[in-house]
Measured scan of single mutants.
Amino acid sequence: MGMPNRKYADGEVVMGRWPGSVLYYEVQVTSYDDASHLYTVKYKDGTELALKESDIRLQS
């Protein structure tokens, strides 16, 4: 078993793309699913969504 190939840690605050949009919002990573390679993130309004790594970026 190798290390999970994840870029962002639980609790890390990053920018997540809103689905169907080009806009990124501040989100907190809450979990990562090794099987689906999706991150569960929480937006400031409390919305929780699963995002692909390509829809997440570090805060500038």
Rank of each mutant, 00 (worst) to 15 (best):
Y43R: 10
T40S: 08
Y43W: 12
L49I: 13
M15T: 04
L23S: 09
V13A: 06
R6E: 02
V22A: 14
E12A: 13
G16H: 03
E53M: 04
R6P: 04
S31P: 00
W18N: 04
A35Y: 12
R6F: 03
G46A: 04
D55E: 10
A50Q: 15
N5G: 14
Y25V: 14
Y32V: 01
Q59C: 15
K52P: 13
P4R: 04
V13E: 05
S36C: 08
G46Q: 04
V41D: 00
D45M: 03
K44N: 07
T30K: 13
L38E: 08
Q28L: 14
E53V: 05
G16K: 01
K7C: 06
W18C: 10
E53A: 06
A9N: 09
W18R: 11
L49M: 11
W18A: 09
V41K: 00
L58H: 14
A50W: 14
V41F: 01
V14Y: 03
S60C: 14
D45G: 05
A50K: 15
T30R: 08
G2C: 08
V29I: 14
V29A: 00
H37C: 13
K52Y: 12
I56K: 00
R17I: 06
M3D: 13
L49N: 04
T47D: 03
M1G: 15
A9M: 12
Y8G: 01
Y43M: 15
P4Q: 12
L38I: 10
D10M: 07
E48A: 08
L51E: 00
G11D: 04
G2L: 08
Y39C: 01
K52I: 08
Y32T: 00
Y24F: 12
S31C: 06
D10T: 09
T47K: 08
E53W: 05
G11F: 06
M15G: 03
N5R: 04
K44C: 11
L23N: 10
K44D: 06
Y8W: 09
M3P: 15
E26T: 11
S21D: 06
A9Q: 14
Y8C: 02
Y43H: 09
A9F: 10
G20D: 07
G46W: 03
D34Q: 10
A9V: 08
V41S: 01
S21Y: 04
Y32C: 02
M3C: 15
T47A: 06
D55W: 05
R57C: 12
W18P: 10
R17G: 02
Q28M: 14
E12Q: 15
T40M: 13
T47Y: 07
E53Y: 05
V13R: 10
G20F: 07
E53I: 04
S31F: 08
G2T: 08
R57L: 10
R17D: 00
L58W: 10
S60P: 13
G2N: 07
L38S: 07
D55C: 06
